[in-house]
Each structure stands twice: as C-alpha cells, then as structure tokens.
C-alpha cells in the first residue's frame, strides 16, 4: 500500500513539475468550451437543421475538452512509463502495483481536469443536477484516459498513438454529439466512447435526471478498458523481459 501511495505521489509530482501542463489543463477548457459554444450558436436554422443552443454547444465543448485532454494524457503516461517501469521492476517494484499507480495517477488528474471543465461550464450554465453533472463529465474523461492508456500500451509511439486518439475523439465528438450537420448516423455510434457519457451529462444538466442504462454502459466500458489495458500492458512488459519479477 505504501508503495502504491508513493508511486501515485511521485507521478502527480512529475506532472505538476511541468507547470505548463497544469496551466494548459486550465486554459484549454476555457478556450474549447467558449469557442465551441459561440461557434455552434452561429449555425443558422434551416428546415431540417436545428440551430444548437449556446449552452448545449458549451456542454459539447466541455465533454470533448475533457476527453481529449485525458486521452492524450493517458497515452503519454503509458508510453513514458515503459522504460522507467522496467527499471523500477528491477529495483523490486511489483509490476501490478506499478500499473495501478499509473492508472490511479491518470484517474486523479482526469478528475481534476473534469473539475476545471465543470467550473468553466458553471460560469454560464446552472446544471439541474450539479453533482451528477460533474460525475458524468469525469466519467467521460476516465473513458478517454483509459482509451489513451490502451492505445499507448498497444502502440508505444507517440506520433502514431496521438493520431489514433485524436481522430477517434474527433469522429466521436461529431457522431455522438448530436451534431445538427449529421443525418443517418449509423447505429453503431452508440458504442462510441462519448455517446453514453454525453447522454448522461446532457440529461443531468438540462433535466436533472439520468438513465441507469447509460450509467451501467459507461461503467462496463471502463471495466473492459481497464481489463484490456492491464492484459496488454502486462503482456508487453513480460515479452520485454521486465514482468517476470
């Protein structure tokens, strides 16, 4: 337990040691949420195209902002961890504890990023269910944080990994975000990572309620991602010779 706590603390300190990351994690949500809201509100209403209310635009910007910041963080966390983790294993750190510290750090920072996004949203939107809205924003971030971690475990190069995470997030935001531009959205969109978190968040903010089915789906999604990350990370470390300790 002590090793776990030390690991998480040192990972968080590593993140905070680069103040620019912390500053951007605060500034980018402001830019994305307001930029998204203002731009979406400019879409003209046409017979089959509904204009997006500015608050819904901000909400979509918020969920996308959390997702992409957390997703890229997860990617970097896993790829940067590789070499360092092998050295730590040699010095006696149990591999499963190492992985747990990485994922716990990721989850901690993601919740903080979600809190920043939520605070920015609160400047202009009064959610009907505040706690639920924050929790669902954090869940959206966690889903993408673990997707980033999974991509980082499968594809341990930043350029390629970032392309996958970025394009997935953009397609996801377009299809899951009820874009007024889209029609004939395929049924499989409900399996996209942001689809159910966005439904939960939208219901909590504008109606003060949420569907249990959506919540269960997101919970299952996170568990599957965690299992996949654990399996693949463990496998890659074993084949690299570092996980037999």
């Amino acid at each position: 337990m002590r090793r776990f706590a030390v690991g998480v603390q040192s990972n968080v300190r590593t993140f905070l040691r680069t103040p620019l990351n912390a500053i951007l994690a605060i500034v980018l949500p402001l830019v994305v949420i307001e930029g998204w809201g203002q731009a979406m509100a400019g879409l003209p209403s046409m017979p089959t195209v509904e204009a997006i209310p500015i608050d819904l635009g901000r909400l979509l910007g918020g969920i996308f902002g959390v997702a992409i910041i957390a997703g890229l963080m997860g990617l970097v966390q896993m790829i940067d961890a590789r070499d360092a983790d092998q050295r730590l294993v040699r010095t006696g750190y149990p591999p499963h504890v190492l992985l747990a510290t990485r994922l716990a750090t990721l989850a901690t920072v993601t919740v903080v990023v979600a809190a920043v996004n939520y605070a920015v949203l609160r400047l202009t939107i009064e959610p009907d269910a505040s706690v639920a809205a924050f929790a669902f924003l954090a869940l959206a971030g966690l889903v993408y944080a673990f997707i980033g971690a999974l991509v980082g475990a499968v594809m341990p190069r930043l350029f390629e990994g970032s392309l996958v995470v970025v394009f997935l997030a953009m397609m996801d935001a377009f299809l899951s975000g009820d874009s007024p531009l889209a029609a004939d959205v395929p049924d499989f969109v409900q399996y996209f990572p942001l689809y159910h978190p966005k439904q939960l968040l939208q219901s909590a903010v504008f109606e003060g309620t949420f569907a249990t089915g959506d919540l269960l789906f997101v919970g299952g999604y996170i568990l599957v991602l965690l299992a996949a990350v654990t399996a693949i990370f463990g496998w890659t470390m074993r084949t690299a010779g570092g996980w037999s300790a």
């Binding site: 680069t18 980018l28 994305v32 930029g35 970032s162």
Partner: peptide, 21 residues
C-alpha cells in the same frame, strides 16, 4: 513546449481554427 502540451495545442488549434472559426 513538452510533448503532452504540444499534442494538446496541435489538436485544439487546427480544430478550433479551421473547424469552427
């Protein structure tokens, strides 16, 4: 900037610039 901050910026800048503004 470092890689993480760079990736954030290079995603959000073109997306907001070309895709919205």
């Amino acid at each position: 900037v470092n890689r993480l901050a760079g990736m954030w910026l290079m995603l959000i800048l073109p997306m907001l610039d070309i895709g919205l503004f």
